[in-house]
Design a protein around this nucleic acid. Structure first.
Lengths: 254, 254
DNA sequence: CGTCCTATTGATGGGGTTCAAGGCGTGTGG
DNA sequence: CCACACGCCTTGAACCCCATCAATAGGACG
């Protein structure tokens, strides 16, 4: 049974994550944790923000998993992006007045609400924080663009391999995963709704990945037994995560 | 043969587009046109910015069509978003140092390059412009999210209908389309690469839409003969375009 | 100890891909 | 000025990946 690194309790996950963006003083960034906030817990399945709702707070994920999702007329659901601890739920709250999609809890989550004026005042004092937050928002944009490629031009096994690798990388950034293992609190239906597949086919494809010896699953723990093989299988390239610290290590292939 | 509204020659398409964002003084916005710039023409098929290139300019589309795209190892291409006149090619140039996808010319395009410091200085003098540009960037994010839904949970005919409606709306915003017609300088292969389909199936599906009497095609001109029927077919809802001027008119359905 | 949700597995069918061939328009060079 | 090449469109045929349907098993929870 793999052990998981302890989260860095000194900081909120977002502050931990922003540390990946080089060139900004740590003091600027950690000032974010000093802002007054309200926190609320939601349970799996809860709608955190409804589609069409007006948004008036800066909203962050502090713990647990959530998702941006859309429900179609025919009853299908598409998960647009998974939101992990450290993700910004409402990056555009200063310019968009209504949310065009739904925010949904995928596990028990803690959501932090900041007052817009509070953050605005802080950003004027700490311009480095503004830059770092902008980077975080840009990173999510990039993740969504990669999701488009995943849905448009990869088959089921490639989509799932790519998805697992992305989740693992993103969890590592906020110190919520081990080198080769992570906790995935997702049902196969939720993976299916993220990847544009059916739950049945997700199930069969997960077994295919296990039979290949690339992953192992035990309850909510997913082990990545052979990350290079997984990356080769789906042409995974971390350029889109814009982790400058990585650039010396892994140069993009294609 | 439909006639097309004359573009508003007084302004750059981006300035025209930013006029859709209410509550910002027009003087702030039109100051954008006063910035010094360099413009360059590209021909269909040219790579405007290569994947992995470092980005040092604020880049805008002034005329013509371009695309964000990715090529997979197996030789497939996925078009992530179509860039029209008035679109911002590098919204994240101030925080990301390399482009994770390719910018490609889909027709003859004029690309405008602004110096980062020039724009930065202007934004300090005209904060309303900063807000409006942020809105434009947020609108593109939203369009990409909708693309995820389109790829993940819609079939071929719905994808194409939805795509045509989106292109028409976006062209209307920059005064490049008539009420019921537009010029689409795209090959069927390019539509296929945008929608995750094959060119063969795009061809057959376009005929299906014509047989239904919803569209008509003559060379590069595409007419939308029955927009309500098209919208009903694919569950098109403009909420994701965040056009405040529309909100009184069309409330979201689902 | 029933109930509900999730996981699992097999069978069937269809939407879309792939392969292949022909037509059409446009540009280019002899 | 014609011949040819090339890119794009069009159409048919065969196939396949994945959806759908259905039925069972396995927890978690009250």
């Amino acid at each position: 049974m793999p052990r998981f690194a302890h989260p860095d309790f000194a900081y909120t996950p977002l502050v931990t994550r922003l540390g990946y963006y080089m060139g900004v003083p740590a003091a600027d960034i950690s000032a974010l944790d000093a802002l007054p906030y309200r926190e609320q817990r939601f349970d799996r399945g809860d709608v955190i923000i409804a589609r069409g709702a007006s948004i008036n707070w800066v909203v962050l994920v502090t713990s647990g998993w959530a998702a941006r999702s859309r429900n179609t007329r025919s009853g299908d659901r598409q998960i647009i992006n998974i939101l992990l601890p450290g993700d910004i739920v409402t990056p555009d709250v200063f310019v968009l007045h209504r949310l065009d999609h739904e925010i949904e809890a995928l596990s028990t989550v803690t959501i932090r609400f900041l007052e817009k004026p509070d953050l605005q005042a802080l950003l004027e004092r700490a311009p480095g924080l503004a830059t770092a937050l902008w980077w975080a928002a840009a990173q999510e944009d990039s993740i969504v663009r990669e999701h488009v490629v995943r849905l448009g031009r990869r088959n089921a096994i490639e989509r799932i391999a790519h998805f697992l690798l992305e989740m693992h990388r993103r969890l590592m950034i906020v110190k919520q995963a081990d080198e080769g293992a992570m906790i995935l609190p997702l049902t196969q239906l939720e993976i299916a709704d993220a990847l544009g597949l059916s739950n049945v086919h997700v199930n069969k494809t997960l077994f295919k990945l296990e039979d290949l010896g690339h992953i192992r699953r035990q309850k909510t723990v997913t082990q990545l037994l052979n990350i290079p093989a997984l990356a080769a299988l789906c042409d995974f390239d971390t350029l889109y995560l814009h982790l400058e610290a990585d650039q010396a290590v892994s140069q993009g292939t294609s």
